[in-house]
Every structure is written in C-alpha cells, then in structure tokens.
C-alpha cells in the first residue's frame, strides 16, 4: 500500500516518540532509585552548607573570575598589540607566550602557581592571588588571539583616516580602532568569561582556608563531610549555570545586535 509523503513523515515521527518513551521507561525500570536519589538528590542533607555556599563559595567563584578576567584582558591587550608590533622580538615573545599558555592544561598552571611558587619562594601572598594569576595568564593567551583578530578586523582605512587627521598612531588606536574592535569581540569575549568561570573550579586542587573556597571546593568538601553522595556537586553545578546561562543570553543578544547594524 503506497503512502503519501506526509503520511510517511507522520509515521516516522510516531516511531521516534515511541522509541524515546521506551528508552525512558527502560531506564526508570533498570535504575536503582534509592541509590540514585541518594547519590544525586539528597537535598535535605545539605542544610549545613548554607548559606556559606552562596556567601562564600558563589562569591569567591565570581570574584576569582572577575579579577582573573580583568588581569587577562589587560595582559591580553598588551600581547595582542605586541603580536601586531613591527619590532620582531615583541612578536616572538607574544607568540611564544600565547602558544605556551594555550598549549598546556590550565590545571598545570594552577599547580605551578599554587604549589610551585610557595615551594620555590615561600608564601609571597595569599593563595587566591596565585589562583587569579594562573587563571589570568591562561585567559590572557586566549584573549590575546581574540583581540588581535578583532583589531585586524577593523579596516585599514580607519587608521589611515585617523592618521590623516594628524592623530599619532597610539591615539588612532585608542580612539578609533579599539572602540570598533571592542564591539566586534564582545560575543567571543563573553564566551571567554564563561570558560573562565568554569576554569575557576580547577582551583579546588589547591590548599586554601575555608573563607577562600570557591563553589567546586565547597562541593567537594560537602561530599566528604556530609552524608549526601554527590549532591553537593550537583548544587555547585546549578550555581555555575546561574552565572553562565545569563552570560550566554547576553552574548547572543550582542551577536544579534551586531548582525543588525555595523555600529
């Protein structure tokens, strides 16, 4: 019996839905619900973690991310300008720096700063400074590449017009090129902040005092001290989403806006 195209499409959809439901049912029947609930959803046991998880953990995650990003932005801009410099040794240095910090895992940089520095030089400053230095350096390597691409995306005629009006090179860069590049790099920069927010979780491998804990360290601490399976980490994950989802919404808004007009 011949079927029309729309009949065939409807049949295909029905089969997909039936399959999907079948998989869910199989999972529900196969899972040990008591154990699953204990491992991931023992929310009633988490009382002792609050409100510190928010006023210390969430606060520190945001604090480490923001300071690291600010540091990464300044260092990244410097590296981007060095990469575009006419003096070759600047370019060599910037390229080596970027390749190095993009090429090794962030966690190794964190270990080098959090464990290595104190071993080599004694305690120079509180542990969070090491965290932010490490994260800032890693992000500066990525930010440098994003900024360089953004700066080079501004047409050469813009610099020529600025220079023709008597602006020195630095003034043309600051007043004409950087503001335009900034608008171009806003969406990728927002993604960079999201990555950095998540990378800040790597700090959990370092030793620190309880007031310096960020979300993941808090979660891991909770796993050991509470009888709630992995639930503390589930909650930590939710807090990350509270930070990152609004950021991606913002990034998407920038993207649609810059698509609408060149300004």
């Amino acid at each position: 019996m011949a079927m029309t195209t729309s009949q065939r499409a409807r049949l295909s959809k029905t089969i997909q839905i039936v399959l999907f439901i079948a998989i869910i049912v199989a999972l529900v029947l196969a899972l040990d619900w008591d154990k699953t609930r204990y491992a991931f959803f023992s929310f009633e046991e988490l009382g002792p973690m609050f409100p510190d998880m928010i006023i210390v953990g969430l606060k520190n995650t945001i604090f480490y991310t923001v300071i690291s990003f600010a540091f990464g932005l300044v260092a990244g801009l410097l590296l981007a300008l060095m990469k575009m410099a006419s003096f070759a040794p600047y370019r060599w240095f910037a390229t080596a720096f970027v390749e190095f910090f993009r090429g090794i895992p962030a966690i190794l940089v964190l270990l080098a700063f959090g464990f290595g520095l104190p071993q080599a030089f004694g305690t120079l400053w509180p542990q969070p400074v090491n965290i932010m230095l490490a994260l800032g350096l890693v992000s500066s390597a990525y930010i440098a590449e994003t900024l360089r691409a953004g700066l080079q995306a501004v047409p050469k005629g813009q610099t020529e017009a600025a220079r023709s009006l008597g602006m020195p090179a630095w003034r043309a860069m600051v007043t004409i090129v950087i503001p335009q590049a900034f608008k171009i790099v806003l969406p990728p920069m927002t993604n960079e902040v999201i990555l950095l927010t998540k990378d800040s979780s790597l700090a959990f491998i370092l030793g620190m005092s309880i007031t310096q804990y960020e979300l993941t360290k808090f979660g891991r601490d909770g796993i050991q001290s509470l009888d709630a399976g992995l639930t503390p980490l589930v909650v930590a994950g939710m807090f990350y989403l509270v930070i990152t989802i609004p950021l991606s919404l913002v990034a998407r808004k920038f993207e649609s806006r810059s698509a609408r007009t060149k300004r």
């Binding site: 005629g157 813009q158 020529e160 017009a161 023709s164 004409i176 608008k183």
Partner: peptide, 13 residues
C-alpha cells in the same frame, strides 16, 4: 593636509 578617500573611511562608531 586634508585627505578624502575613495571609500570615505568615516568612523562608523
């Protein structure tokens, strides 16, 4: 020295 370009090169921002 005023300069006028083929592509205008106005500052779009």
């Amino acid at each position: 020295v005023g300069m006028v370009f083929q592509q205008f090169n106005l500052f779009p921002h």
